[in-house]
Simulated scan of single mutants.
Amino acid sequence: MSDDIPVKDNDLDELKREMRSAQWMDWVEANKNGLMGAAAAVLVVLIATGFWIESDRSQRATAATIYQQAVNETDLGKKKAMLQNVSRDFSGSSYGALALMQLAGVDLENSEVHLNALISHSKAMEEWVWQARLDLAAIKISAGDSAAAKSLLDEHVGTQYQQVRYFMLAQISTDESEKQQYLQKALDAPSANDADLIRKIESQMSKKVS
């Protein structure tokens, strides 16, 4: 009769787990310094990330407060200064982009500078960029620079901006037939409920040369 005691399957599994556990503990012991360093590095990253998130949240709240105060300010000099502060101190935020939009209407001498900055701003919404292009094109038209205006108006804009875009293209067109085509497109475009603009379109269309 053999003295060997048969090992059951569940006993064998338990033995394997104990061996793996022992190997794991040996590895941990051998590498504890490295593990402690890695844990410390992870902790530093987590803390830094937490501070960054909190700082970013605080900055956005500050920018929002100053921007809203600027919008509500009735003194144009103070409004301009506050908007410039937002544009400068929070230049990488969406409030920095909004400040540029407001500055274009307040700081008229530098409207082109503000509008160009808004167009290239990484945080500007598409709608802001579209409006900035149209506003800049209007300035170019007033200055007699039809080529620059045409270049801006050739850029894509959203559906709700097409009526104004076509009307402005009609204003710089030197060909009467082309002008009428732009005016018709403006009339057919989705209306922005601008009754005054529609009257201007219809008035110019009625002057069509026979």
Rank of each mutant, 00 (worst) to 15 (best):
A132H: 12
L100R: 09
H114F: 14
L136S: 05
A138E: 14
E109W: 11
A137W: 05
M125L: 00
Q131N: 15
N110Y: 13
A104G: 13
A132T: 12
Q131H: 15
K123C: 02
S91E: 04
L98C: 09
S93F: 00
V129E: 07
A124N: 05
E126H: 04
G105Y: 07
D89Q: 06
Q102W: 09
A104L: 13
L83P: 01
A97V: 12
N116Y: 06
S94G: 11
A99H: 13
H114D: 09
L108I: 15
S120R: 06
Q84P: 02
H121R: 01
L118N: 02
L115I: 01
N110D: 14
L100E: 08
L108C: 15
Q131W: 13
R133Y: 09
S122T: 04
L98R: 07
G105M: 13
A97G: 15
V86L: 04
A124K: 00
H114R: 14
M101H: 11
L118W: 01
D135P: 05
I139K: 15
A97P: 13
R88G: 03
W128K: 09
A124H: 00
S122M: 03
R88W: 01
A124R: 04
L115M: 03
W128T: 10
S111L: 08
A117C: 03
S93T: 04
S111W: 08
E126Q: 09
L115S: 03
D107W: 11
A138P: 12
R88P: 03
S94M: 09
L108T: 15
D107L: 14
L115T: 03
A97H: 08
Q84H: 07
L83H: 01
H114V: 09
V86C: 03
D89L: 02
A132Y: 12
A97Y: 06
G96Y: 10
Y95E: 07
I119W: 00
L98V: 09
H114K: 12
V106A: 08
L136R: 04
V86W: 01
V86Y: 02
K123E: 00
H121N: 01
F90A: 00
F90D: 01
E126F: 01
L103K: 08
Q102P: 12
A104R: 09
V106M: 06
L103I: 13
V113I: 11
L100M: 15
D107K: 10
M125K: 04
E126D: 08
Q102E: 15
S111D: 07
A137S: 14
I139T: 14
S93E: 01
L98A: 07
L103G: 13
G96A: 13
M101Q: 13
